[in-house]
Simulated scan of single mutants.
Amino acid sequence: MRSHCRRFLVVPALLCALTLLMARPAGAVGDGEDIGVGDDLGLSGQVVRLYADAARATERYETGRQEAEGQRAEAQRIEALLDRERREIGVLREDLGRIARAQYRTSGGMPLTAQLILASSPEQLMRGQQVFSQTNMAVNNAIEKSRRAEAQLVKDEAKAAAAWRRLEKRNAELAELKRDIEEKLEAARWQLQGQADASVAAGSCPGAVRIDRKQKKFTSAWVAPLKSYELSAAFGSGGQRWANRHTGQDFAVPIGTPVRAVGDGRVVKVSCGGAFGMEVVVGHTDGYYTQYAHLASVAVDQGERVDAGQWIGQSGTTGNSTGPHLHFEARITPEMGSAVDPVPWLTERGVQLG
């Protein structure tokens, strides 16, 4: 009868994978930025911390899932080998049956007294006894070998099944951890957005939220305003949301996503009212300006110097916005109405979007 655990026969590899998974450190992930958020930074800090926790949990979960898939494929390969071994054992047992039947037909199974009486000569008796002994020994050895193999098979199946259960349990724990963090993150995002909406309605910014982080050293002078994103409304596109044409490039991202300055410069404007909601405008050393709008929080103050890649706020959906995104503009002056297409503007500076 087949064991229901047969597909799990991959003991050493599974145990190794389980050990590595459970011992995996929760190191920093992402683009190399080291984030340290204290408990006193309010919702902005909580959102950033939860983003990092969710990223680590997701990475660990995906690693565990991929390892489990690899072990499942290995188990299936070993199962095929075991099926072949079982077929070979079946053939051996058929051979043993034939040997036993042949032994019986040739008097190999007769009592020693009967063989003494019926033997025509001592030589015949000795030959018969020798054949009987050799056959008996071969049969006994084969049976013992089969018994040991079957016993080891049962042990290996039990070990492999236990290892697989531990691995599946660990994956389930990681998935639950990921879900819990994502639920907390979603709640914190909308709380953060609620605070931002209140500030915009009052027309006053709450002040920069400083997040303790180690600045990543970028090798280029210009970077994209977000680490990961999906491009949405493009420059010059039409629609009912804009009086004329869209004046920037939109990046679809969840509320609370860290927004970066695309280049070195100085903050020339921090505003919390109007169609753009909570916004930051940065003047760069080449004479151009960039705007970051519909934010949920700001991390800089007006007049402050910023470096390329420095966090200047968190994305949101304040002002005239139909959903969470970053509205990004490249301008000739700090004021609206002087925007140029930001995609080729960034391309000229070595930043490819998409």
Rank of each mutant, 00 (worst) to 15 (best):
115 Q>F: 00
173 E>S: 12
327 H>R: 09
245 R>K: 08
250 D>P: 01
148 R>T: 05
343 V>Y: 07
11 V>G: 04
244 N>D: 09
74 E>S: 04
43 L>A: 15
114 A>V: 11
313 G>Y: 05
19 T>S: 11
53 D>A: 13
306 V>N: 11
31 D>I: 02
322 T>F: 07
302 Q>K: 14
35 I>M: 03
270 V>Y: 02
15 L>N: 15
203 G>T: 06
20 L>F: 09
155 K>A: 13
15 L>V: 02
104 Y>N: 12
9 L>E: 04
92 L>M: 11
1 M>S: 12
102 A>T: 11
141 N>D: 13
91 V>K: 10
77 R>E: 11
214 K>F: 02
235 F>M: 02
283 G>L: 00
117 I>C: 03
101 R>L: 02
89 I>M: 14
22 M>S: 02
337 G>E: 06
195 Q>W: 00
180 D>W: 07
73 A>I: 02
244 N>M: 12
224 A>D: 01
256 G>D: 04
310 Q>H: 09
251 F>A: 03
32 G>C: 11
308 A>H: 10
25 P>L: 09
242 W>T: 03
64 G>W: 01
210 R>N: 05
353 L>Q: 11
242 W>I: 00
176 E>N: 09
277 G>H: 05
14 L>W: 05
301 D>N: 15
353 L>T: 13
179 R>S: 15
171 N>Y: 03
326 L>S: 05
30 G>H: 01
228 S>P: 01
354 G>W: 02
14 L>R: 11
342 P>H: 03
198 A>L: 10
168 E>Y: 01
56 R>P: 00
149 A>Y: 15
181 I>F: 14
135 T>F: 12
103 Q>M: 11
61 Y>T: 06
297 S>A: 15
67 E>I: 01
289 Y>V: 07
169 K>E: 09
238 G>H: 06
338 S>I: 05
62 E>K: 09
52 A>C: 04
170 R>K: 15
167 L>P: 00
87 R>F: 09
100 A>I: 01
187 A>M: 08
312 I>N: 00
65 R>L: 14
228 S>V: 08
329 E>K: 06
208 A>K: 08
289 Y>H: 14
309 G>Y: 00
303 G>C: 12
27 G>T: 09
149 A>L: 13
350 G>D: 07
6 R>Y: 04
275 A>T: 07
228 S>N: 13
59 E>K: 10
311 W>E: 07
83 D>V: 06
281 V>S: 01
276 F>R: 03
258 P>V: 03
153 L>S: 13
167 L>Y: 15
122 P>G: 08
242 W>D: 07
228 S>M: 02
81 L>W: 00
306 V>F: 11
319 G>T: 09
243 A>C: 01
297 S>W: 08
129 Q>H: 10
301 D>Y: 07
2 R>H: 10
4 H>Y: 07
185 L>I: 07
127 R>L: 14
259 V>M: 03
152 Q>A: 11
186 E>T: 12
172 A>F: 11
41 L>S: 10
47 V>N: 05
169 K>S: 14
276 F>T: 08
81 L>N: 00
320 N>G: 13
339 A>P: 02
160 A>R: 04
294 H>W: 03
39 D>T: 09
10 V>T: 10
325 H>C: 15
207 G>L: 05
113 T>S: 14
37 V>F: 04
78 I>K: 05
87 R>W: 12
77 R>M: 07
23 A>W: 06
307 D>R: 14
103 Q>L: 06
33 E>T: 12
250 D>V: 03
